[in-house]
Simulated assay, not measured.
Amino acid sequence: MNAFVELPTASLIEKMSNDEYHACPEFSSSQLKDILRSGAHFYSNNIIKENERESKKHLDFGTLAHTLFLEPEQFHNEFAVIPADAPKPPTDVMRNAKNPSEDSIKRVQWWDNFAAEHGTKITITEDLLLGAQRIANNLRTLSSYKVMENNYGMAEASIFFVDPVFDLRLRVRPDYHIAPCSAFPNGLLFDVKTSTDARPFKFSKSCSDFGYDLSASMYREGFQQYYNTPEKPDFIFLVAESSAPFNVKQYKASDLFLSVGDVRYKKSKELLAESLLLDEWNGYSKEMEDIYLPSYMTKQALENDFN
């Protein structure tokens, strides 16, 4: 049974499936990132849904590692491991052959039985499982994991709240959070990420590319609204590389990081509220603009010229 607690402007559902959460009408951080790119992107992705997001059936390696680290008890409910000695999946030609070979018949039967046994679970290989297990084990060596163990918290709790300025109904689903306590009066938020490269100069670019700053700001606001804390919580990234040796890092979002996120988060809400009010979903500006190289390239060129 879902634990449901309601406050005047915010509510929390502790146990809610991913499918249920993503079916909710409230706006998510992904949608706010769409509107920040352009109204046309928001309209295309979220209103007429021309670019339907990939279904859960498509495996995200990060989702597997996330489950093993934060919700290992859910693993067998969501994933099915393909045995190492399983036959190769049958091709469409094999399935549709009028006179299939004995080998084709066995392969089709094996995979049909496997699908019937495991239903809609995500299928993974043993090698993929071993890699995700190494990630989960490496993440448990971080000091943040001890904090998570020693303080009451929740994985994947869904928070619903209302923006006080633009009256937008919003939702967030932090990977893990620690509830306000004596050690953390404002609580603490954790976001688990997989990355090809967890080093600071590489992961900071991922933060920019994927709008992690905006998400952090939105999560912090929803958390504060629900728990009614004096200040917003700190925000921690737990980052694991997605290939061997599966190194891990932990980062605290800096004040500057969060300030930039707050500005972009506020702007996205303003744009969405205006677009909803006017029912106008504009694309990019059609004006002619100058284009520049990234600032670091300009800096390198100038340094080479003068040294």
Rank of each mutant, 00 (worst) to 15 (best):
E26R: 14
E156D: 06
L128A: 09
N228R: 15
D19S: 13
A136Q: 03
L276Q: 00
A273Y: 10
L238D: 01
S208K: 12
S268H: 01
N45R: 04
T141P: 01
L128Q: 09
L238W: 05
Y227D: 05
G119S: 02
D103M: 06
Y219L: 04
E221A: 08
T67I: 11
Q224S: 08
F79G: 04
K269I: 05
H58W: 11
D279Y: 01
A115E: 03
S215V: 15
S259E: 06
P100S: 11
S254D: 10
K249I: 02
N186Q: 06
F237H: 07
K193T: 07
E78I: 14
S55F: 07
S206W: 06
A136P: 03
G62F: 11
D175C: 11
K193C: 09
N307Q: 13
K88T: 14
S44W: 09
D290I: 15
E50W: 15
D92G: 13
Q74V: 15
T63Q: 13
R95Q: 11
S101E: 03
V108Q: 00
D255Y: 08
F235T: 13
A198Y: 08
E156A: 07
L271D: 04
D290F: 11
F4T: 09
K15Y: 05
K49T: 15
F69Q: 14
T196Q: 10
L70A: 15
A132P: 00
